[in-house]
């Protein structure tokens, strides 16, 4: 893909993303019915869950790119892995901020060690560790390889973390999703938010990767100028 079509695609994506975000906001904040016990507060759930799923998607991308790097040793996979990890951590930060905001009025505490929240936190720590490892490695080839190995380890670890925490710590009512599912009237808002966040993820990933590619190009030019 050449640069012009690429940037045109980004522009189109930007437009669609804008519309999707507006639609998601409208559906979640206005159109969706008010929840009986939690009231308007429940509306945060749409963004909370959508961010969580987008974050998980990002970590999945990181894993795939890490495997691709180990197999092929092509620089672009390292770029994708880095950008996916950063974006994923950003989305999980949204989850970890919105979680307590919701929990305080509903459960009367800021933080509950509920399996979901705890897993999100550990997942976030795992990928912050990933970014830390990258930060303290200077040689780019070596950084790419070691980061890829850590990315694989982290992603394989994630389900184990989830089941371990769930198995031993599952004392809190597991909210939403599984227990009876979502009320049909809330579904449009839920899916719209999810779609909007996934689009946001794609957009952020593309932009972030483009930036990283530019930085590498700058490095290459710097070497030539030497």
């Amino acid at each position: 893909m050449n640069e012009r079509t690429s940037s045109r695609l980004d522009l189109a994506l930007w437009g669609i993303l804008g519309i999707a975000m507006m639609a998601a906001l409208y559906l979640a904040l206005v159109d969706a019915p008010r929840e009986r016990t939690m009231g308007d507060l429940q509306r945060i759930f749409y963004f909370h869950v959508a961010a969580a799923i987008a974050g998980l998607t990002a970590f999945g991308v990181n894993f795939a790119a890490s495997v691709a790097y180990v197999a092929r040793r092509e620089r672009k996979w390292d770029r994708v892995a880095l950008c996916a990890a950063e974006t994923g951590v950003a989305f999980l930060a949204i989850v970890l901020v919105t979680g307590p905001i919701w929990a305080k009025p509903v459960w009367m505490v800021w933080w509950t060690w509920s399996p979901r929240l705890t897993s999100s936190l550990v997942l976030c720590l795992l990928y912050v560790a990933y970014l830390l490892v990258r930060r303290y490695l200077e040689d780019p080839d070596r950084r790419a390889m070691i980061a890829a190995v850590f990315g694989i380890v982290a992603f394989v670890d994630a389900p184990l973390v989830w089941f371990s925490i769930r198995w031993w710590r599952d004392i809190h009512p597991s909210p939403m999703l599984e227990s009876g599912g979502i009320d049909p009237a809330m579904r449009p808002a839920f899916w719209a938010c999810l779609a909007a966040f996934e689009l946001l993820l794609v957009y952020l990933l593309r932009r972030r990767c483009a930036l990283e590619a530019l930085e590498e190009e700058l490095e290459r030019l710097g070497r030539l100028a030497e």
């Binding site: 200077e138 040689d139 780019p140 080839d141 490095e219 710097g222 070497r223 030497e226």
Partner: peptide, 11 residues
């Protein structure tokens, strides 16, 4: 070639 960021050890 081997690069270390902006430095190149081998071109």
């Amino acid at each position: 070639a081997k690069y270390y960021g902006r430095q190149s050890a081998l071109r």
